[in-house]
Design a protein around this nucleic acid. Structure first.
Lengths: 233, 233
DNA sequence: GCCATCCTTCGCCCGGCGCCGAAGCGAGGC
DNA sequence: GCCTCGCTTCGGCGCCGGGCGAAGGATGGC
């Protein structure tokens, strides 16, 4: 365990409303510029710059310069997992507040680069139930039946295997059950978006921190995923 | 997802060195008095009282009055899981610092009320590998062979089943692999401590935030767990 | 009743940090 | 070369919050 000081330093980086809004916006897995993040957080450019410096310095974000823009993204999926888990805890601790964005957000969304929400957890359950994945030392491995089925859906298994972890659980804060993360989770989400089985819902406001993460199943997607795995959102 | 303000409010509760020390101390699952927590955090009684009020108000701790003492404990295992995960992230982000307490702490320890460290993850792997537990909708379920085996070890399965969740994964920050939490995790740890298969190591200093969490396998424990499951620390 | 112990509340000080406006770089566009 | 645009740095302001000492309940022992 880290020293209390080191622990608190990391937690304090998450403990500011402006930084929290930035990090939530980056949970979509996309890289955003400093200006976009300033708008999401509702602060001016100087303040945003200071916040982003601290987040990069603290190792939570990585930055990529391109022309006059500076693109920021979460430094790793561990960071994303910690943010999701803390978000779930925060929701559990403040039950009086209802889901501010209605039920649509709970149906299907991106958690960093993989699927979450009811769709994500039912997909996870379906993969386990049909024995497409089986427990392994470091999370989950694909069974022969799973390899065939996933390949048939168009999931790039080679790309998934190149990830640091092939497949592991990520706790879902809205459903309180795990969904699939790791390389396989990423490739399944990419496949669904590529084939337009999932579409992105529009942001609810210009500074919507959850923009680009809301998803909804298209008719084609509902049909294909229902046939192959019996899942729905 | 909570609003950025609510998220930040929760994270800020973790983002103070004194509160972090208190929370780490409470990860053992025991209830500690305000005075003990003040000593752990290295601050005076008034400051500790203010911190504890905020933690209780924020829902992270629950308090139990008994005589002149006020016993504080983590409000739920979700809180413990979030603290463990954030601890792992903090360690991953600051690699220059070596494990301050040597390797003993990585061998076996308590994570809230269940086993973690090398012993915890190898136990998890053994339970899966021998098919004593199998994936279920909400985590893991015990197989018939598992029920027999666990009962033979002396684990109170009825008590485990009364928990909100029978068995689920908890990510281990030192091993980066899951160990077993939930009712079953708690009962296994309780069984090992009750039968003195595991002993508590002494604190390294009077204000050791990790006190009461360090464990070590006794000769008897190493023999019994090795025979039954092939695990060791 | 009296004191000891544990904890909280009150009043106060101080440091840190979050914000902005203004100014300063750096990269592109023309 | 000049302007525009995106971002950072600097200086200054204000406030929140964390620390302590002193005083004030509350509980238990005697």
């Amino acid at each position: 365990m880290p020293t209390p000081a080191a622990f608190a330093a990391t937690a304090a980086l998450l403990g500011d409303p402006a930084r929290a809004a930035m990090l939530q916006a980056l949970l979509s897995g996309e890289a955003l510029t400093a200006g976009e993040l300033a708008r999401v957080a509702g602060i001016g450019a100087p303040a945003a710059s200071a916040h982003l410096s601290r987040l990069v310095e603290g190792g939570l974000l990585s930055v990529h310069r391109q022309g006059r823009h500076r693109y920021h993204r979460l430094a790793s999926e561990e960071v994303a997992a910690a943010i999701e888990m803390l978000g779930g805890l925060s929701l559990a601790l403040s039950p009086p507040r209802r889901w501010p964005h209605g039920d649509a957000f709970r149906a299907a969304r991106l958690c960093y680069d993989h699927l979450a929400g009811r769709l994500g957890v039912s997909l996870h359950a379906a993969l386990v139930g049909r024995a497409w994945i089986a427990p392994a030392a470091d999370g989950w491995a694909a069974t022969p039946a799973g390899e065939a089925g996933l390949d048939g859906l168009g999931v790039d298994l080679d790309a998934a295997r190149r990830a640091r972890r092939f497949a592991c659980d990520c706790m879902d804060w809205s459903e309180r059950r795990p969904h699939l993360a790791g390389g396989l989770g990423r490739e399944i989400a990419a496949c669904c978006l590529r084939r337009r089985w999932l579409g992105r819902l529009p942001p609810e406001s210009p500074s919507d921190p959850l923009a680009r993460r809301r998803l909804s199943l298209t008719p084609e997607g509902a049909r294909r995923l229902g046939e192959a795995l019996g899942v729905s959102a």
